[in-house]
Design a protein around this nucleic acid. Structure first.
Lengths: 199, 199
DNA sequence: TTGCGTTAGTGGTCTGACCATTTATGAAAA
DNA sequence: TTTTCATAAATGGTCAGACCACTAACGCAA
């Protein structure tokens, strides 16, 4: 009754934990107080603290180790992918949209590589043998060249969704062609070859 | 001891709720069973059920009304944005990355509009008066033209993050130019003008 | 010094209780 | 009959306390 904020306890706990992290400038791997400590310091029951922590955990922001404690970790959206997919993929057209977006992001990547005139990507050499995961490995490598982790995260998110829809495997020979073309810095050709993957 | 899956209870509850929703093809606004019902049917304590529900709620997938029940709602990523920002924006370079990604996505949008040879966008006429939100309105409109909701969601997510960083306002005159150029289907010029926004 | 059992701390889970809010119920009043 | 309103039932919100499972540190013994 005396709560004017009307906000749920677990949400207030959430915010307090956020502030706690911000003020102390905690980083990846740092430990946050135990559930019992938080419960006491934040004046909330352990159950409410846990509700907040579980929510944060599902978002992939913290990691919980039984018997050890709760630790920060850099945001990895991949953990909530499967869950979100249930709700996002219900619309019939979404699978097709996923395909489109993944294609566009990869094309964007190749265009940027060309624009930045990237040359001599050392790591490409280790990709010669075509494996199942070659598509993923290739673009993780390429997006890393752009130096934008966020774009990589977004692409990875979309690509992960794709895998859940049991998409058919792409042609590895075309992938090999793309690798070779990038080695020779023939980005326009690589973009063309890449387009063929998605038709 | 007898749990070979080693998965936490709240995560199993999570999955069971997902399956429940999938099987019954529940849609936006539909009600899911009460916490006590779920607790009984899923053979878990109400506390564990709540941990799962709170996590789903934070993701923006369900809505909870005191005294009424819990209801599905279409996924809106905007709710968890503020929370995520605390954790994502800690890295110094991230703001810059956000800027880059937003720019690239918008450029991608314009390129696709050109490629699809989109003409005669009716809704542009109502954007003549430059408002504060014109940037958002414009690209929501343009992404909608592409007919890919997922891409729109991704852009909107990134743009929302941006707003939290108190980014300075963009030049509205340039935005007006872009609108005019799109009206005349001068996409190349629009792309050039757009580049100027982010320099 | 090394090895290992003990123990304290921590997350994981459950039970049961009580409060706050909404909606349905049904009796009383018009 | 219709309307009004107190009551009850269902539901989410929150808490306290208990117990289990796991980890790491401690300290004693070999």
């Amino acid at each position: 009754m005396s709560n004017p904020s009307k906000m749920k306890v677990y949400q207030e706990v959430l915010n307090k934990i956020r502030h706690f992290i911000q003020e102390r400038e905690l980083e990846d791997g740092d430990r946050i107080p135990s559930e019992r400590e938080l419960s006491e310091q934040l004046n909330a029951s352990r159950a409410s603290v846990r509700e907040a922590l579980r929510a944060i955990e599902l978002l992939g922001l913290i990691e919980t180790r039984h018997g050890e404690g709760t630790f920060l970790r850099t945001y990895k959206p991949f953990h909530s992918v499967e869950l979100l997919s249930t709700f996002v993929l219900t619309e019939a057209q979404t699978k097709n949209e996923l395909n489109e977006v993944q294609f566009m992001l990869e094309k964007l990547c190749l265009q940027e590589l060309k624009r930045l005139n990237v040359r001599g990507i050392e790591e490409l050499k280790s990709l010669d043998d075509a494996s199942e995961q070659i598509h993923n490995e290739l673009f993780i490598l390429l997006f890393n060249q752009l130096g934008n982790q966020l774009l990589l995260k977004i692409w990875h998110l979309v690509a992960s969704f794709q895998q859940l829809t049991e998409q058919e495997q792409l042609d590895t020979s075309d992938l090999q062609s793309i690798i070779d073309q990038i080695k020779r810095q023939e980005y326009d050709q690589a973009i063309d070859t890449h387009s063929r993957l998605y038709t």
